[in-house]
């Protein structure tokens, strides 16, 4: 028998009213995510991935359907989000950005020091603690955003295309770092990406979404052993087959999305 789900979505739908009429971003999305699962969502641009995450994070109202995140520990925040695009505060240095959630929660100063230095170490930012965002590269800013979310120690983590703006080498390094940090606590994660490679590299469970309106097209389980070596994975036969299989699902959706634009 499976453990009860940590996150469950039940017929979630979202319709935006815009000037040019109604846009259905999400259509009847149902999904169960077991505790400790690294769940990756892939889908063409504009299919409603960000919308899905924002609803589950409580930043957006749903139009219909239901969702729930099971609470296991009242003393910790329920979720923390790594937002798509630049979201660290330009007016705080790296340290204060990473400590943001802890400070808001009134965690004691010595504890904040310990936790923040741990995650700055983990993300290779210790030396840059006093730097302001305008002094950092795009990759470093993403790391701050990741450190900020992890440091707050939420029950579940939402990550919205955290690496999409990075070059290949940086992406690889950060994926490695992310997996290493994640292995420490095995939090439940929903991770959004455009990249099939990235999805298979990181995920336990891959949700493929259809082009707008966003529905779930398929769910693929990834049983590659952990901890994973990102480079070794690339010559793994199972890895290649999973990538091939998921591309098969996505292919038609990406074509469909393109047809909608034209």
């Amino acid at each position: 028998m499976d453990a009860p789900p940590k996150i469950s979505l039940d017929g979630l739908s979202k319709t935006f009213a815009s000037r040019s009429g109604l846009v259905t971003a999400l259509d009847n999305v149902s999904l169960n995510i077991a505790p400790g699962t690294f769940c990756v969502v892939v889908g063409p641009s504009g299919c409603g991935k960000t919308t899905l995450l924002r609803i589950v994070a409580g930043l957006e109202e749903r139009t219909s359907g239901n969702f729930s995140i099971r609470r296991d520990d009242r003393s910790r925040p329920l979720n923390a989000m790594v937002f798509q695009g630049d979201s660290i505060f330009p007016w705080m240095n790296v340290w204060d950005n990473a400590a943001y959630g802890l400070k808001l929660r009134g965690v004691s100063a010595p504890q904040i020091r310990e936790i923040v230095s741990h995650y700055l170490d983990r993300t290779g930012l210790r030396r840059f603690a006093e730097y302001y965002p305008h002094q950092l590269s795009g990759g470093m800013r993403q790391r701050v955003s990741i450190a900020r979310a992890f440091a707050n120690d939420p029950e579940v983590l939402f990550m919205d295309e955290p690496f999409s703006a990075l070059d290949e080498q940086n992406k690889l390094l950060l994926q490695e770092e992310l997996l290493r940090i994640w292995e420490e606590h095995k939090k439940t994660v929903i991770f959004i990406t455009h990249s099939v490679d990235e999805a298979v590299t990181l995920g336990d469970k891959i949700v493929i979404m259809t082009a707008s309106p966003g529905r779930i097209k398929a769910v693929v389980d990834v049983n590659l052993p952990r901890p994973r070596n990102i480079l070794e994975l690339r010559r793994d036969r199972e890895f290649g087959e999973l990538v091939f299989q998921i591309w098969g699902y996505l292919r038609t959706e990406v074509d469909a999305a393109r047809a909608q634009v034209n």
Partner: peptide, 12 residues
């Protein structure tokens, strides 16, 4: 607006 979303997300 994203900074206000961050604030909300972190419970400000």
């Amino acid at each position: 607006k994203i900074y206000f979303d961050v604030g909300t997300n972190f419970g400000a």
